[in-house]
């Protein structure tokens, strides 16, 4: 098991937020990210393998969102999935991101574009995972 320091977690939150939403993470979200890690110890106790994957992704500034679907699994989640999901929850509940607005109507064109981008992201993620040997 590897434990992350505050500085590691802060860096994680910033990088993951940027991969997901393409902008700088709000300070409140980073604060909550740290607090959740303090409270849910399972989240900080990451296996050696997962911790290596996280370190590579953050150190080399790889697109975490694109890689994550290839590490998804049934049952216990990969640390990357859990941490990205945590950022997503915090963004949704902190009212921080427009993507979660129940009032914004997405046009069909935008939906198709997002789906195509998602598929392209999947291909990119597949390549990144293979190239960097992420497990």
């Amino acid at each position: 098991m590897n434990h992350s320091t505050h500085a590691d977690l802060r860096q994680e939150a910033e990088h993951f937020y940027c991969c997901l939403f393409g902008s700088e993470a709000p300070p409140a979200l980073i604060m909550h990210y740290l607090a959740v890690h303090q409270c849910l110890t399972e989240l900080s106790e990451v296996s050696v393998e997962h911790s290596r994957t996280l370190r590579i992704i953050i150190g080399r500034r790889l697109n975490a969102a694109a890689i994550e679907p290839w590490l998804r699994r049934k049952g216990r989640r990969h640390a990357l999935t859990a941490k990205l999901l945590l950022v997503v929850y915090l963004a949704e509940c902190g009212s921080g991101h427009i993507g979660f607005s129940r009032h914004v109507r997405v046009e069909r064109g935008a939906l198709i574009f997002a789906a195509l981008r998602g598929l392209a992201g999947l291909c990119h993620g597949y390549y990144l995972r293979r190239y960097h040997g992420l497990v």
Binding site: C19, L20, F21, G22, A65, A66, E68, P69, R72, R77, T81, L84, L85, V88, Y89, E92, C93, H97, G99, F100, S101, R102, V104, V106, R108, A110, L111, A114, A115, R117, G118, L119, G121, L122, G125
Partner: peptide, 24 residues
């Protein structure tokens, strides 16, 4: 449900799923 609850079930990167979930 919170939309985040549904994201791991969409077989796409989460950034794309967040953009699509409201429309879906």
């Amino acid at each position: 449900l919170l939309w985040s609850d549904l994201l791991p079930d969409i077989p796409l990167p989460m950034d794309a799923s967040v953009r699509m979930i409201g429309a879906l």
